[in-house]
Design a protein around this nucleic acid. Structure first.
Ligand SMILES: [Mn+2]
Ligand SMILES: [Mn+2]
Ligand SMILES: [Zn+2]
Ligand SMILES: [Zn+2]
Lengths: 148, 148
DNA sequence: ATCCTATTGCGACTGTGTCGCATTAAGATG
DNA sequence: CATCTTAATGCGACACAGTCGCAATAGGAT
């Protein structure tokens, strides 16, 4: 469940328009689904929801759109420890990065923001000489309720 | 390229024996491949290398053994940004966790150890109440040679 | 040497993600 | 508004990772 939506929906569309990327009926539907999602969705779930807005949308269009959004840094792709199958999960990128914790017993997903994480990324950029585009910290473990 | 091998090969076998897990010809081959690997390998690569030691080994045995090693916390599973296909990569777990950086242009993989990373994990355990089993920090970006 | 059962190979299967190609429709232009 | 260019789509076929049930095999305890 990505963080409270403090963003105005429609941001994606504005961003892409500014870069001269063509807006289609299908893209509008997919962007809408992702922007308003209250949890992490995989490609199949995105497809099903988008089809409620535009029933003609094809699976491959979803994948192509996810590729587009990834390339432009608008969404992040997650494994969430592949607790159920091999699909990847997507969420819109917000101002601030966050960490994902997945409980290996109950499957609960927790999000966490940390200044230490920001410092760590800075350290990596400096000491490894990388310019970071995506930073994914995913943790598998046992939540307070499931700890033995 | 996992870090310099300061570990004695055979550790896996000893560990599993101690837990009363049956050792087979096939498992010995697979463990050997993983323990002596000098870079991150995917399941297909592990299979091909293991077959040189025991040609009868089947794909499913590799996957089952990887599952076993994951469950016992002996190996880590990585995406490495899925730079080439959807396969996952494996490496033996060492004393110290490390971060993976993947260059989105040249594909180079860099490993990095950081105390900040250790502190961050401690913070997460405390503040989120999780007992961490696996912590994966994977970064996609541009290495010093590829930065525009 | 015998026995129990965990592990294996096999084969068939599921599901994710990709791609080429003919068709459609965005949106720029006049 | 009609025309035109070309990016984007739907479709179908595909590649490939990973899983599973089942009968046969072999570890290793006795
Ligand atoms: Mn993955
Ligand atoms: Mn590594
Ligand atoms: Zn839990
Ligand atoms: Zn590079």
């Amino acid at each position: 469940m990505p963080f409270a939506n403090t963003e105005i929906p429609g941001k994606f569309q504005a961003f892409l328009a500014q870069r001269g990327i063509r807006m289609t009926e299908q893209r509008r539907a997919i962007l809408n689904v992702i922007e308003t999602a209250k949890k992490h969705l995989d490609a199949g779930q995105i497809l099903r929801r988008a089809r409620k807005l535009d029933p003609s949308i094809d699976r491959s269009t979803v994948y192509r759109t996810l590729g587009l959004l990834k390339r432009h840094g608008l969404i992040d792709e997650l494994d969430l420890m592949h607790l159920d199958g091999e699909a990847h999960y997507y969420e819109r990128k917000l101002n601030r990065d966050h960490i994902h914790l997945a409980c290996l017993r109950c499957g609960r997903i927790t999000e966490f923001v940390s200044d230490l994480f920001e410092s760590l990324k800075e350290q990596v950029e400096k000491e490894c000489g990388y310019r970071i585009a995506v930073a994914r910290l995913e943790i598998g473990g046992y939540c307070s309720k499931c700890r033995t």
